[in-house]
Design a protein around this nucleic acid. Sequence first.
RNA 1: CGGGGUGUGGCGCAGGUUGGUAGCGCGUCUGCUUUGGGAGCAGAAGGCCCGCGGUUCAAGUCCGCGCACCCCGACCA
Length: 510
Amino acid sequence: MAKEAVLEITPQSRDFSRWYIDVIRKADLMDYAPVRGCIVFKPDGFELWERCQAGLDRRFKETGHRNAYFPTLIPASFFEKEKEHVEGFNPELPWVTEVGGERLEEPLALRPTSETVIGYMYSQWIHSYRDLPVLINQWANVFRWEKRTLPFLRTSEFLWQEGHTAHATEEEARAEVMRMLDVYTDFVENDLSIPVYRGQKTPSEKFAGAVETYSLEAMMKDGKAVQAATSHYLGTNFAAGFNIRFLDRDNELKLVHTTSWGASTRLLGCIVMVHGDDRGLALPPLIAPTQVILIPIGGPKDRERVVAEARMILAELQAAGIRARLDDREEFRPGWKFNEYEMRGIPLRVEIGPRDLDAGQVVLARRDTLEKMAVARPGVAGVVRELLSAIQQNMFRKAQTFQAEHSFSAEDMKELAEIVGTTEAGTEEETAGAGAGGEAGGEARSRIGGFALAGWCGRGECEARVKEETKATARVIPFEIPSHLHLTPPKRCVACGEPARFPVWFARAY
RNA sequence: CGGGGUGUGGCGCAGGUUGGUAGCGCGUCUGCUUUGGGAGCAGAAGGCCCGCGGUUCAAGUCCGCGCACCCCGACCA
């Protein structure tokens, strides 16, 4: 049976970035807005975000956080209170400078993040150790006017969540930072089926204003990295800038220790680029807006009884808490619908036709393996429920295998460059060999890179040299090297050859 | 902000070098036949060819100036 991919989607092996744009548009997740770099989240795309919100929000609440909302507009003077912070964000800030044709006395920035306003408010709310800790999260839109934009991964306005907490001690603040990193890992790996490497950012890659930044790094199917979420220990930097002090048990006036942590609509880009294939989107069941699509099959003479049966199955699935939909439109034929819903990433399809009715069965088709199976009609809901859970796990395993197959250790600059995919020569052969399934065709051009585990002496100049020569950046200094990778970190700095002080994951990044 | 590319019915493109009635595929509409992997036939609608200026009897095509978007580099969740 024919299993060629849908024609409207550019194969990943030919041009990965075009593939990405094709998929998000064909799956109807977004559209371009009139303002450059801004996008519309269409209902299917937005619902993915709503499910991310639900999964994260539940976990935030379970760890004692509460939601609040701070204004979008931030006074210019606020940005001057933390030196590194201003320098970090100045180039990307959009400003409101006039209202009704009159110049404002103090320009207002559209927030790129809210450390400053929240710091200001916290200074008024916190007076005593009894007021601590403050554990607040905000769901909001933020603005960062980037030079180059890409839907979901880098847009001028995006949606995210930012947690901001204040603590009496460094230990407690640091524990919060790690706890939230665990929360993100749990969500990303279990709900989104995306495996990540966790660790600490190098000084040059950390958040502007943070003492330390930690992150989760996911690997896209072209081997490039995306930071899936971050968690920062801000020390007393913002407390000092905004004068957030409290009177402690020992009657001493002290600065609070703050943290902030965030995840954005960038996660949607990760879902697409981690699970998608040449047939389109593939969604993990837990966040798929529609988990099961029912497709009735058969001509006019069978239609009535087939659709009646399909409705019964639909009701059973819905009663079992499964997000199922029936597509009984007559203007599209079954084959068309198969392709359409695969393109939209629906995890599981139920096909029901006259032959199934006669045999007392239905046909189930998995999006993750494209496998079809006939199962007995009685008890379908139970089987479907188990399959959805199997799909969820299989998608994680597949992504983890891909991640492992594209993770290598690099002893020197040349190896590192080859791994991350910046070597110019011999592009085509290397692409085919890299595990894409060797997508045929001499015109293949996109190549799959990967993550390189290298030694690092800790000097910024060595890190800069790697970036200069290979276009790869230091993603994280990993907490641990997963044992299934069977990799040992090199003992010497990949750039200067001096003894390495840290292992670092290097990769090209979005 | 530098380098390259592209702007032509809703979408994807051809036409351009050699100026002369604007074309193809997909989609849309109507009708009939179809329905287990993007159905077939018949008919139909739909375009100030990105904008402005110029050359010419005549410009989608040639010249100038803009604008927009895409790709590649320096900044970033």
